[in-house]
Design a protein around this nucleic acid. Sequence first.
DNA 1: TCTCTCTTTATAACGATTATAATTAAAGGG
DNA 2: CCCTTTAATTATAATCGTTATAAAGAGAGA
Lengths: 153, 153
Amino acid sequence: METRIDRIKKQLHAASYKLTPQREATVRILLDHEEDHLSAEDVYLLVKDIAPEIGLATVYRTLELLTELKIVDKINFGDGVSRYDLRQEGAAHFHHHLVCLECGAVDEIQEDLLEDVENIVEKRWNFQIKDHRLTFHGICWRCNDSSSQNPSE
Amino acid sequence: METRIDRIKKQLHAASYKLTPQREATVRILLDHEEDHLSAEDVYLLVKDIAPEIGLATVYRTLELLTELKIVDKINFGDGVSRYDLRQEGAAHFHHHLVCLECGAVDEIQEDLLEDVENIVEKRWNFQIKDHRLTFHGICWRCNDSSSQNPSE
DNA sequence: TCTCTCTTTATAACGATTATAATTAAAGGG
DNA sequence: CCCTTTAATTATAATCGTTATAAAGAGAGA
């Protein structure tokens, strides 16, 4: 069976890049933390555990490369740092985020939800959409009324 | 007739801040460039024309203050800088943006468009929405087919 | 093995933003 | 009006995230 790493390796080769040990270690960390929204520094600290000799600049360059190949998406929630988020395999569009103002949690919405809005924007503003960023800021289900349920995520 | 500045002054007073000459100059620049999406540095350079003695730190502090009072919105388009955007008076929500990947233009969408999406998110994810950020990246009407029309903005 | 190219490392540089200390301005009370 | 207190500003240094640089290393092909 072909693993996710193998497929990423092929994507790199297709763009004539190699999957070096450092790049592989970085990708593994991203795969192991798919739920999280790690900053470059976060990734660096985690990668050091499995590849202690790696440098911070290499992590930055690798994340930049993966962003360019659309394997990860770079996103910014308004704190001073960029965060990196693995794109779902085969996903046409970037997923959305819910940022809790109370506890800081970041949840993901994989559903598209924007189809209608995008149709309107493309037609009415004659704008050819290539990508989007949608983030809601508010109070998450955990911080809302404690009797509330964990919603269908 | 009460001017926009007067109303902003009242908002400041209501939060027990003063509209100092430096703050007033900064607000004037923002009002004069409502169409643009100025960075702090941009604002600083423009303010210096009408208040040459102002310091960069004061501009940063003023913008931070205005953001806190929800008079302006701080936004980040992925280049390294924060930009500041006057909120429409009485607008419940922050407006959306169209960023052109070709020419870099940033157009605004004042229409809400997200009502349905927000209803779904609030119910299905039990998330109490306070604010949002929606940005589309793509090709603007100017860079699209040149026979195209300036859309209804 | 030699050479060429890509990649990495370590470190310096950079740019945006924030913190600090000293100064100034304004506000309220006697 | 002066005195005191507090808020705001200035100039500058410090900080932090990120990017650039130069030297070293690793791998592929001749």
